[in-house]
Design a protein around this nucleic acid. Sequence first.
DNA 1: TCCAATGGTTGCATCATTAAACCAGATTGC
DNA 2: GCAATCTGGTTTAATGATGCAACCATTGGA
Lengths: 158, 158
Amino acid sequence: MVKRTSFEHDDCPIARSLDALGDWWSMLIIREALFGVRRFGEFQKKLGLAKNILTVRLRALVDQGILKTAPASDGSAYQEYLLTPKGRGVFPILVALRQWSEEFDERPEEIATILVDKEKGRPVRKLELHSQDGRLLGAEDIALKPRPAGKQGKRATA
Amino acid sequence: MVKRTSFEHDDCPIARSLDALGDWWSMLIIREALFGVRRFGEFQKKLGLAKNILTVRLRALVDQGILKTAPASDGSAYQEYLLTPKGRGVFPILVALRQWSEEFDERPEEIATILVDKEKGRPVRKLELHSQDGRLLGAEDIALKPRPAGKQGKRATA
DNA sequence: TCCAATGGTTGCATCATTAAACCAGATTGC
DNA sequence: GCAATCTGGTTTAATGATGCAACCATTGGA
């Protein structure tokens, strides 16, 4: 990759996200972590990736504050990898990826699972983007504005 | 990358999405396309990637039904790359990536633009996941169920 | 103490990515 | 209608990320 073109200093937030979790494994590691996987061997078994790659990815995710290592927990003096809030914040991205597959995949019958709400057990609705006054927005309804300098404005409604 | 471990036949919809658009450029190409970019040279200039890679990526995106080529449009007998519905369906994923950056980036001041609703010009709300009966769901409120065999169930509310 | 499992690291082969040079068809100038 | 040039690529060669397999170190158990 000659240098793999880091987007770390790109001013586009999408590029910046991709720089952090834009490879094929990081997202899947976070997905597993969201479902409770914590241990090296468990990630390795579930994802089937090479251990050296897993090592590198886990370290990168820790460096980026997406995972953190906890000294132990279940007795054994091994390490665990836990999601930080930043890591849990990836959840909507995973949902978006999932829903895109569900909607557009060529062979949806190969998709093994559906996302349901835990309380009722029924499929969830599609992710929705709303304006501040509550209107549902599509790709045509949005625009980009230069970030207002200085003032930070809103930072996380949730 | 030895073979990049295709997830094409994985049964996880997230893996399947990543297989289609999980590299660093495809998402950005789609982002540009959503903002109206259509021509080879335009993509190349805006993204600054090597032309051979752009060629490969565009071809892959066309093969996957995310982009389609239109014979011309502005006179010149060149080609254009247009988003299909499947391509436009990537929009929520891009929004999710963007919002993740906005919320968790270490240096949010480097982010140049904000997403606003075109009508009012105000920042949009965060993406929301709802249950069918309208409750707002977080990562803790969801579960996975095996896909009900045979019956296809819902397919796109939007 | 020895053996197995966990959690890695190391080395090597391979393939993807990259930059840069090259090339062909379309367009333009003359 | 012929050369220059622009657009849209392809080819080539270097680099380095990825994957596999072998190896190592520590933990845990018999």
